[in-house]
Simulated assay, not measured.
Amino acid sequence: MILKANEVKHLYRRTARFYDAALLGYQLLGLDRHRQKAVAALALRPGDTVVDLECGTVANFPALVHAVGPTGQMIGMDLSEAMLAQARGLITRKGWTNAHLVHG
């Protein structure tokens, strides 16, 4: 089933608060290892800028921060304002001043 944009927004608005908790099972199965491999394949270097489309709660950002360092930039874009609200919380808690979010 293919969802329309407004249906996707509604789905993520309802699930944003517990989205990261829902991923815990996948993390136990090695999801973070796959994230690390994916980021390594990008061959990012300190100072690079990276864009994470449909970034959700920015679960990829820890690996991206490590890759681009404090002089790099991370830009996350998502269509769900609720997911971006969760992302803003993590960015603030981690103190990532080089992380930027775009709603779209």
Rank of each mutant, 00 (worst) to 15 (best):
A40C: 00
H100N: 13
T92G: 12
T92A: 15
K4R: 14
V102P: 02
G89C: 07
Q36F: 03
V50P: 00
W96Y: 15
Q36S: 08
E54A: 14
D20S: 07
I75N: 04
A40Q: 08
D78N: 01
A43K: 12
F18E: 02
R88L: 14
C55F: 08
R45P: 00
H100L: 14
E54K: 11
T97A: 15
L64R: 08
Y12D: 00
K9C: 07
R17T: 03
A87Q: 04
H10D: 11
Q86P: 06
F61I: 06
Q36C: 02
V102L: 11
R35W: 12
H34Y: 11
K9M: 12
T92V: 15
P46T: 12
Y26I: 00
D78F: 09
I2V: 09
A87L: 09
A21D: 04
L42Q: 04
K4W: 03
L79Q: 09
T97F: 08
A38T: 11
Y19Q: 02
S80P: 06
Q86W: 04
A43M: 01
T49Q: 10
H100C: 13
L101G: 13
L3R: 15
H34S: 05
H34A: 09
I2M: 12
L101I: 13
V58E: 07
R35G: 07
F61G: 05
L3C: 08
H103M: 10
D52T: 08
R14I: 09
